[in-house]
Structure formats: C-alpha cells, structure tokens
Write a protein that binds this DNA or RNA. Structure first.
Lengths: 190, 190
DNA sequence: TGATTTTAAGGACATATGTCCTTTTTATAA
DNA sequence: TTATAAAAAGGACATATGTCCTTAAAATCA
C-alpha cells in the first residue's frame, strides 16, 4: 500500500475513496540539504508529509542563539504548528538536513478537507493528539533528566538523528551547551 | 452567556442547539482540596471542564520522587491526555489543590459527540491544537531558561499558581530542586 | 585543489544547581 | 488546643554545567 495512505490509516481509518479524492490537494516537493521548507517571519501556509529525508525545526531564543526544537524524520508530518494553526508569522524555521521529499498541502485545502470529510477531521484531531503526546514526553525528558541521560535517550530512541544532525543542533535540542555535550560524548567513548 | 459555552465558542463556533443537545453528557463534580480527579494506574475515562478551582497533574519520575507536570486552572479542560486518548492506564494523578468544581464527560460520550457533530469535532481538534501550543511553550521554557528565569516567568504569567501551589510542586514543575527554588525566592525578596 | 569558513573538541576556571543535612515554620489530626 | 507530621528555609559542601578560550578537524567554495 501507498506509504502515505498506510501512515494515515495508522492514525485513523480512511476509505480508499476518501483518500483518492484528497490527492489533488497534495503536491510533491523535493528539498536539498540546507533548503528551507518554512522560514521564520513568514506565515506558514503548508503542512507536509515527509516521504523521505530529515528536517530540523529551530528558532531564535532570547540568548542570541538558535534552539533546535525538533528533528522531523520520514513517515511524519511537519509544519510550524503555531504559525500554521493561528496563521500568524512563524517564529520557527524548518530546514532539510539531508535530501528530502515532501507531500505538501496548503492551509486552505486542509480546511476544505476538514469541512467536508469526517474521516479527515478525525485524522487531523488524532494526529494533533499524537503530536501532543510526543511534546509531553519531550518536556518530561527536559524536566527530569541530566544532560547525559538525555543524550543516551536520544541515542537509543533516535540513533539516526545522532548520525545525521550537527553536534551543536543536538546539544541545543537537548537543552545543553556544546561544551557539555562534548564532555558527555567523551565519557561515553571510554 | 454560560461560562462553558463561552469557553467553547472561543475555541471553535458552535450553535446553541449543538451546545444544548450535548449537555446531557456533562455531569457536575465537586472536589475538596486533596481529592483526586484521575488516579495513577487506572484508565482515565473522563475529561473535565474546570468551572472553578485548581488542580495539579503529577507523575512518578525515575528518581523516586514526583514531578508536577501541569497546574490546571479554571476555564480550561483537564485530563490525563495520554491515558484518555489511548485508553491505557494513567501514569499521572490529577488532584485538586483547592475546592474545585468540574463539568465531566466520559470517553464514550465524547466519541458519540465527535461521531455525530462536526462542530464538536472542530472543538476537539482546535482544543488539542491549543494544548499542543501550551506544551510547546512549556518545553521551550524548560529548554532555554535558568531556574530564576523560569520562576520569574511563572510569577508573571500565572501568579495565582504561586499563591496556591506548594513550593515543592512549583519546584518540580520548573524542573529544579526545592533547595534551588528556596535560593531564588531568597534572592527575589532582596 | 587550496584557501577560507564553519564546526567540533577540549583546557581552565566560574557559577548554577544538587545533595545532605538541621532548624524553623506551617499544616494536620487526635 | 496540643502533639505530630509535613513543608519550607537555609548552611556546607559536591558536582554538573556554563563561559571563554585555543586548537584541531571538517565542510564549503572559489
């Protein structure tokens, strides 16, 4: 079965017809390493299913540096949620960290889908619920774990991220400095 | 207008009829200080609108102590989201920290509402989106701010929580020890 | 390819935060 | 109300993490 359909089915049931009729709204988009899908300052008009590749989401924190808030991997949606939901300028940038293939739908089309289809409504709600749970787990990790524990968790749960992402981005995702992450990696080697 | 209806309208539009017809599903529940709305280990069957009062959500972290993950105040929903969404045993306990009045709906009734009503579907999705954004902000705070910055933010954004909640719960919510919070409060007095 | 820029590693020291206590204050229950 | 327990404050010291560097390695571009 189609990768995208199978992903959706896993969230909430959808018939072949419902799925096929929605296809006209989705466009293919290919990104090279370093290309941006969403840019800070612009209203985010799109949400994308990641067929292949990896992206990172980052924003400017108050300390004149960037915080990586998310690594987005294949078989997932990505967007700048706050900007997309509220249709306000995005605080976040989403950038491919390797060759990436997306299926993109724009805000208005998604609203149309929601308005005329209960299954798509269901998918929208169930997906948002899933994202909430991911974010809750992330907050719990940030709240309770030491730098080393957080790094080991990432190593265990998302080993491919550690291979693909820059050290400084991993550090900021874990809420530590590169100096600290360097020490941790040093310790683990031993 | 009714406090609950006005809250819902603020999330997504709903007609008087749609609202009235759903009223049969909601039950009043009063909690005394210390009473639990949701208990760890049980499947969470309910979600509640808080008409009045305050609750805290906490769970056992791996370090043989409790982490307060959320303070729930009036004019909001509360539930143990993961347990409610997936209908699995709850890792969290939700407890009133003062006299509290709830409007409670059970899982099956909510599914019925979703199944037969697009406006309720919309409310469900839009509400979950809002909760996601709150959690995202919380994670950002935990990731980028020092203990003192986090405390000052809470003081500014939710001053009533600082009055009502126990010091140790505030400390754990902010991801610091009571020793650290004690120092911060000492500094601020000066 | 070689030159330039960016990223990562790690030394030396500073600081924030944690751990382990004891004391004081506040809440709770008999 | 008094006795008991729980919570909060805070001293002394330990440790994790941050800041500010310099050097080494890797990536990028002309």
């Amino acid at each position: 079965m189609d990768q995208f359909k199978s992903f959706l089915q896993n969230i909430a049931p959808i018939t072949d017809t419902e799925f096929e009729e929605a296809q006209i709204y989705f466009k293919e988009l290919k990104l090279k390493k370093g290309d941006c899908f969403i840019e800070q300052g612009k209203v985010c008009k799109h949400i994308a299913f990641i067929k292949k590749g990896t992206l990172k989401t980052f924003y400017n924190n108050d300390k004149s540096s960037e915080t990586t808030s998310c690594f987005c991997v294949e078989n997932n949606f990505t967007t700048s949620y706050k900007s997309f939901i509220l249709q306000t300028p995005s605080a976040q940038t989403i950038q491919a960290i390797e060759e990436t293939e997306l299926l993109v739908i724009d805000f208005e089309s998604l609203q149309k889908l929601y308005a005329k289809s209960i299954p798509w409504q269901n998918i929208g709600r169930a997906f948002t619920e899933r994202e909430y749970l991911v974010m809750e787990q992330y907050a719990s990790t940030l709240n309770n774990e030491t730098a080393k524990e957080k790094y080991l968790r990432l190593l265990k749960e998302q080993p491919t991220i550690i291979q693909k992402a820059a050290i400084k981005d991993i550090a900021s995702y874990l809420g530590v400095t590169t100096r600290t992450l360097s020490r941790i990696r040093q310790e683990i080697i031993k």
